Simulated assay, not measured.
Amino acid sequence: MNIDIPCLHTLLVDRDMIQANDYNPNSVPRDKMELLKQSIIDNGFCFPLVVIWSDEDEKYIIIDGFHRFTICQPEWLDIRRIPVVVLKHDMAQRMAATVQFNKARGVHAVDKDADVVKALLEQGQTELEIAQSLGLDIDTVLRYKQMTGILDLFKNVKYSASWSIESNADE
């Protein structure tokens, strides 16, 4: 299989030009943050943040690396220039990438998956596209649709009749 992977270049960006996204369903306990801090001290910044450029915000928006970004703040390590890789993703691709990165690391808050599914549906993604990009089965996507507002998410679905009324000739 020959897959075309975009060439990624690492840049050093001032931390004031970077901001978090508002959809990441991942959280890390304080002890793991301390371990991340120590890892950066001991090993350097081995994994750049993955970001997109937002013309609207005039900043880089984090797709992956929020906790590494947090460690760069003054209350932790006070690192001013942060390595980033810039992707050219639309909102649906960004959200899917965030979930992919979280799941690939084995840390992901499943209870917020439903909100991500809802947001991707609102971005115009199909259930099948969402299932594929988030590594979910279609039944799970449908279950998440139900959890996040069944009426709005199912309003454009065509249904078949589950039963029909037949007349009884004996009456």
Rank of each mutant, 00 (worst) to 15 (best):
93 Q>H: 08
138 I>L: 13
147 M>C: 07
91 M>R: 15
22 D>L: 07
30 R>Y: 14
139 D>L: 04
82 I>R: 08
148 T>G: 04
85 V>T: 08
90 D>S: 12
111 D>I: 13
50 V>K: 06
14 D>H: 15
136 L>A: 06
102 N>D: 09
58 E>G: 06
170 D>W: 14
26 N>M: 12
153 L>F: 04
46 C>T: 13
57 D>N: 15
19 Q>R: 14
142 L>S: 10
64 D>Y: 05
96 A>R: 05
76 W>C: 06
147 M>I: 07
48 P>L: 13
134 L>H: 01
38 Q>P: 05
15 R>T: 08
103 K>D: 01
39 S>E: 09
140 T>L: 01
169 A>V: 08
21 N>P: 03
95 M>W: 01
29 P>E: 06
168 N>M: 14
108 H>D: 05
29 P>R: 10
133 S>I: 06
93 Q>D: 04
104 A>M: 10
112 K>V: 00
44 G>N: 09
103 K>T: 09
49 L>I: 07
157 V>P: 05
135 G>F: 00
33 M>D: 02
83 P>R: 09
117 V>W: 01
99 V>Y: 02
142 L>H: 13
93 Q>V: 01
42 D>Y: 11
101 F>R: 11
52 I>E: 13
19 Q>A: 12
155 K>P: 06
48 P>T: 11
156 N>H: 15
148 T>N: 05
82 I>V: 15
103 K>F: 09
37 K>S: 09
37 K>P: 02
27 S>R: 10
164 S>E: 03
69 F>Q: 08
127 E>L: 00
63 I>C: 14
166 E>R: 13
113 D>Q: 09
61 I>F: 06
106 G>V: 02
4 D>F: 08
144 Y>D: 01
53 W>L: 04
167 S>H: 09
7 C>I: 06
121 L>N: 09
138 I>Y: 01
74 P>L: 02
77 L>N: 07
171 E>H: 07
18 I>P: 10
49 L>Y: 00
30 R>C: 02
149 G>I: 07
78 D>A: 12
145 K>H: 05
97 A>P: 03
41 I>C: 08
1 M>I: 04
52 I>C: 14
157 V>Q: 11
152 D>I: 00
140 T>I: 03
51 V>D: 02
135 G>R: 00
115 D>N: 14
104 A>D: 03
140 T>F: 00
99 V>L: 06
8 L>C: 12
138 I>A: 03
12 L>C: 13
47 F>I: 00
36 L>T: 04
166 E>T: 11
33 M>Y: 09
95 M>K: 05
81 R>A: 10
158 K>L: 03
58 E>T: 05
100 Q>D: 00
37 K>Q: 11
89 H>S: 11
99 V>S: 09
34 E>T: 13
156 N>C: 13
60 Y>V: 00
58 E>S: 10
89 H>C: 13
89 H>A: 12
58 E>R: 13
20 A>N: 13
56 E>L: 15
35 L>K: 15
37 K>H: 06
10 T>D: 01
126 T>G: 02
7 C>D: 05
59 K>W: 09
79 I>T: 08
39 S>R: 15
136 L>F: 05
121 L>C: 13
119 A>L: 11
133 S>N: 06
163 W>Q: 11
75 E>V: 12
